[in-house]
């Protein structure tokens, strides 16, 4: 369990004071995959670095289980860090060491014998499916393979926690998906608690149990991923969840209904049913849906029809447990 209590981190530069984390309170439970999402500069990376004290908080307390890291001595802190693996956007492998020696590094520094270390490294290479790359140097690997090595390295000391700082942001969509699947597998198989820092909603959607939405150093809201996805309350969450939220050009300029699919059966022709059964003509403004294992995820934006049609649509969708939300565009202040 990781617990942050009133964690604040202030950076002072010559002519500005930047508050990268502002009284953040978070509890990450054992065995869960916890996401921290936000736009660039929200303070996510600083926050995750406060968890293993790569950045020492200006004030506040950081706990790993019962140990208060912010008060722990140097030795105790190093020990705690060996219990928390970390992976990075830029992989950060040792370029002059081959794959197996990279994985052996954390074992080497914690005094594990060479034979035992190599044995352990081989097990991990099997886990990340890179058994044939033992003697290869990082420069000869692809991005996805590098991240797999980094994951194996981070897991070498059997940590309880794995911190992922934008771990998939430098990877293409397919590789991202594979790495996320690997992380999920590790979480299930080894019970490792995973903290994921990302600016991509799809990362959170794919693997996280709970998520915190961060902006300007503050946690704007947190909760279960499906809840936040269905009903984003904070401005940042809405921007992230609503299609076009990150790109104002795509946001509808007329009033619309937002229909959210959150794991309902994708076999149900919901949209056709509205048109045929209810006899309402619909105009699609935007859509972003995905079929994951026969379940529909995503959302559909349709132009708001007449008032009595809206009521009918709402009734129908609620009867099949699909969330619908009316969005009235403020003409004075375009979203």
């Amino acid at each position: 369990m990781i617990r942050l209590v009133d964690v604040t981190k202030v950076f002072k530069t010559k002519d500005a004071v930047i508050t990268a984390a502002d009284k953040v309170n978070l509890t990450i439970e054992d065995g869960e995959i916890f996401g921290i999402i936000g736009f660039s500069g929200a303070g996510k990376s600083t926050l995750v670095r406060c968890m293993n004290l790569l950045e020492r908080p200006s004030s506040g307390e950081v706990y790993l289980d019962d140990i208060q890291l912010t008060k722990a001595g140097h030795k105790k802190l190093l020990e705690a860090r060996r219990n928390m693996g970390m992976i990075f956007q830029q992989f950060n492998l040792l370029e002059q060491r081959n794959v197996i020696d990279n994985i052996c590094y954390p074992l080497e520094i914690s005094g594990v014998g060479k034979k035992e270390a190599i044995q352990r490294a081989k097990e991990l290479l099997k886990l990340v499916e890179l058994e044939d790359k033992q003697k290869v140097y990082p420069s000869q690997l692809s991005g996805g393979q590098k991240q797999r090595v980094a994951i194996a390295r981070a897991l070498a000391t059997n940590p309880k926690v794995l911190l992922c700082d934008e771990a998939t942001s430098a990877l293409d969509p397919l590789t991202t998906k594979n790495i996320l699947e690997l992380l999920k597998h590790i979480n299930k198989k080894l019970g490792v608690t995973i903290v994921v820092i990302t600016h991509e909603l799809k990362v959170v959607e794919q693997i996280c149990d709970r998520v915190a939405v961060m902006s300007q150093g503050r946690i704007e809201e947190q909760g279960r991923v499906d809840e936040i996805f269905l009903n984003p309350k904070s401005q940042t969450a809405r921007k992230l969840v609503l299609p076009g939220g990150t790109d104002p050009i795509n946001a509808p300029t007329r009033d619309y209904l937002r229909i959210v699919f959150d794991g309902q059966s994708s076999f149900e022709p919901v949209f056709a049913n509205i048109i045929i059964k209810l006899g309402i003509k619909l105009n699609i403004l935007g859509a972003n849906t995905e079929d994951i294992g026969g379940k529909a995820y995503g959302q559909l934006l349709i132009e708001r029809p007449k008032d009595n049609d809206v009521i009918k649509i709402k009734e129908y969708l609620e009867s099949i447990n699909i969330t619908v939300e009316e969005m009235i565009i403020d003409k004075e202040q375009p979203a």
Partner: peptide
């Protein structure tokens, strides 16, 4: 690369280990 040093710190390396096993070899 500073990131490599940061990774070594995150793994619980002492400063001496970072110098001898990371900085100089890299």
């Amino acid at each position: 690369d500073h990131g490599v040093v940061e990774a070594a710190q995150a793994m619980g390396s002492t400063n001496l280990q970072i110098i001898c096993k990371v900085l100089v070899p890299e």
